[in-house]
Nucleic acid binder design. Sequence first.
DNA 1: ACCGATCCATACTCATCCGTATGGTTACCG
DNA 2: CGGTAACCATACGGATGAGTATGGATCGGT
Lengths: 216, 216
Amino acid sequence: MAAARAATATVTHYKAAGYRYHTLMNVSSKPERTRLSAEDWELAAMQLIADQGVGAVAVEALARQLGVTKGSFYWHFRTREALLNATLERWEQHGEREIFSQIELIADPRERLPELFRRVAHELQSHRVYAALLKALDHPQVVPVMARVSQRRMDFLTTAYREAGLPPPQALNRARLTYAAYVGFLQLNFTLGLPRINHEEFDAYVEHMIATLIPA
Amino acid sequence: MAAARAATATVTHYKAAGYRYHTLMNVSSKPERTRLSAEDWELAAMQLIADQGVGAVAVEALARQLGVTKGSFYWHFRTREALLNATLERWEQHGEREIFSQIELIADPRERLPELFRRVAHELQSHRVYAALLKALDHPQVVPVMARVSQRRMDFLTTAYREAGLPPPQALNRARLTYAAYVGFLQLNFTLGLPRINHEEFDAYVEHMIATLIPA
DNA sequence: ACCGATCCATACTCATCCGTATGGTTACCG
DNA sequence: CGGTAACCATACGGATGAGTATGGATCGGT
């Protein structure tokens, strides 16, 4: 009765850099399962959030996807809520280093903002979790996380605009405008699929953003 | 056994202008129920969407709020999906006339955009449904509606920017940027509650938007 | 080789919510 | 005033998903 296990196989870990690797690529042979850890559940949950939103994080569905049953889950986590919190916290930690570490290496403050825009624009796959979390703000667990993350990013933008020459009050408003444009863009694209903008036109849009929002 | 009826009373119809009026304001007296129509259910659903999102539209919850039972609902609608579709369609119809009818009366194209910005900014209560619908784009029923509405608004913005003097390609990109800023602003405010911006500072932000996005 | 700790499967309970069936009540019309 | 259609209540069935109980399997250390 231990069949129906290698059914849904493709796991494709979210940034599985350096983690334990027991993804099963084979089609219908032995599942070659390793035992799972709490981390595995969190990563799978994160992937699920990116693909289908926070609401899709159900323990039985996750268990099927990982090739186990609920029994495993409730050993690692006390409740579904606990998994969500752990996953969100992991995302918050991991996500901070993603952009800021790279950007702060750019010496010239004038070049920092355009470069930030271009990089963010071309790394969209990494922002799918953020977009999914935006749509889940009615869920009380995600609100504080998103509030912290958004605040930090806004602060970053504000100082960047100041360093680019804007007087403080304008810098704050420009940061608000920029961040709102970023958030809105996420929504209007890979959640709503507005007239699927193509590559070169997208680049033109990014350059237009830079020209409009960043002071010469 | 017909008690537990005047429990949840406050209905506060969404724009109940000219509709049948059987909202019960009294606290604990007779509910003075009139019989319901399909329209009543749609309005209540719309209110619920604005308050708690699309996912909260459950027929038994709605029935409780309206002081009836499911039996009523399934007389007016074949299914829950049907109610959602009807509600969304009603919103789409009703929402179109809301802004455009007023704005197109403004003769000078140069004044049209700033005026649009100011009005939209001060009528935020009316955009709560739109914000809730943005968070429900994983729900297949809302996607086509939002696609149509967003496309129409984008087109409106694009021609407005052209009339304000921008060359066509720039006008399109500026419209994209503006609309993204609008959408993002909705998210970051009454779903996420970022540092609750106050009134005068908010006006300053709107003027900053106008100065930044609208060509002199 | 054994044994305790770790990990997982099976089989439940319980709550929620959509939808159906059916009979009762209220309004309206001739 | 009587009857038909519109409206609603009650009581189901069935599906889903969270959480619990408990015993079996597996791993690591000694």
